[in-house]
Amino acid sequence: MNSVHANQPLLRVQDLGKSFGGVKAVDGISFDLYAGELLALIGPNGAGKSTTFNMVNGQLKANQGSIRLAGTELIGLKPREIWRLGVGRTFQIAETFASLTVVENVQMALLSHDDRLFSMWRRAADHERDKALDLLDQVGMKAQADRPCSELAYGDVKRVELAIAMANDPKLLLMDEPTAGMAPRERNELMALTKELVLGRGMAVLFTEHSMDVVFAYADRSIVLARGRLIAEGKPAEIRDHPKVQEVYFGSGKTFEKIAQQSADLKAQVNAAVGATA
């Protein structure tokens, strides 16, 4: 356990299982996630990553096991109930309202969090604009607050989605393929921003990711699934050098060495760019 973490995990998953017919998509996996930590959930196609992710979020109900957030059991709760307990989520394909402005998208999330609906007496555009602008400032999008989302570059849309996901002040943020469809520099900038928010807010992030350069550069730890089972858990260097992980990704004779170097180079470039503009 990392010494910077509290003794108790924020998220504790124990003996989690899900079957579809006679097929075990997830087979008795267990892991912990601590506040202030980014945990990558990785594995080859068909490993059970999405099934696990969707059980934590409440979109799928587990057949066995337990998912506890700060001691509260999540299995059996609906996604909205889980969201209200302080679990945010971003999606592989960014979900924003293209016809609304950037700030209005965040205000919609704040309305939902406050359990307010549109009415003839109060316009959504009047609702907590200052708070919405503060969230946009945290993701570097305040200057574009009044632009329609339809005009934004994809990388900026992902930043807006991140602000939306933080509207409920989450303890835990679930990020499903957060860098999908992004160029290498964009995805590293997004994950560097996420890392900054995690440290500043003391929240935890569980994310799925296919880009291993992102995993090696930004995950504090990774858990690796294959055929529904957890086959490895550890820090980036431990996962990179794990023979069984290399085998399920590549077969024999290949390693992550080249990808690890790419991740280090890109992370250094992002850090240098941030330092130059600070």
Rank of each mutant, 00 (worst) to 15 (best):
A6D: 13
I223V: 15
G28Q: 11
L60R: 02
K78I: 01
S211C: 11
V139W: 08
H127V: 15
E209A: 06
L136M: 07
A204K: 07
S222P: 11
G275P: 06
L39I: 11
V205M: 02
G86N: 07
G48D: 05
E247T: 04
L117F: 01
P236H: 08
S19I: 12
Q262I: 09
S119R: 05
L85C: 05
A163T: 09
T208C: 04
A276E: 14
A273S: 14
L172S: 11
K61C: 01
G76F: 02
L10R: 06
P148V: 13
E128S: 15
A145F: 03
S99R: 14
R129Y: 09
D176Y: 03
D134M: 03
D126M: 01
Q8S: 13
S3H: 13
H127D: 09
R147S: 08
E81A: 13
G22M: 10
L69V: 05
V160Q: 07
M191N: 12
W83A: 09
L16F: 15
D126Y: 08
V139H: 05
M108C: 10
Y249L: 00
L152A: 11
V215P: 04
Y154D: 15
N168L: 02
V13I: 15
V26F: 11
G48C: 03
R12L: 07
V56F: 11
K254F: 10
L74Y: 01
E186V: 12
L199Y: 01
D114S: 14
S50V: 09
R116E: 06
F31C: 10
V198Y: 11
R122P: 00
L199E: 13
N63W: 01
N54L: 03
S150I: 12
L11E: 07
L135Q: 02
K171N: 10
V23E: 04
C149A: 14
L135T: 08
E177H: 03
A278W: 08
M182K: 01
M55I: 15
P170Q: 12
L173Y: 08
F91C: 05
K244L: 07
G275L: 13
A109I: 03
F216C: 02
Q269E: 15
A132L: 13
E196N: 10
L100V: 08
D241S: 04
G21D: 07
K235Y: 04
E238M: 00
V205Y: 03
T208Y: 00
Y154P: 15
F91R: 06
I223W: 02
E95K: 15
Q261W: 01
G65H: 00
R84F: 10
G17P: 13
D130F: 05
V13E: 02
I82Q: 05
P170T: 04
A226R: 01
F31G: 08
R12I: 00
M203D: 06
A153M: 11
D241L: 09
G88F: 05
R123L: 09
L111M: 15
A132P: 05
E189F: 01
R240A: 09
K18C: 14
I82G: 10
L77E: 07
R229F: 00
V139R: 00
K49L: 06
V214I: 15
Q64F: 10
A273I: 08
S3D: 10
G234D: 02
S99M: 12
F31V: 14
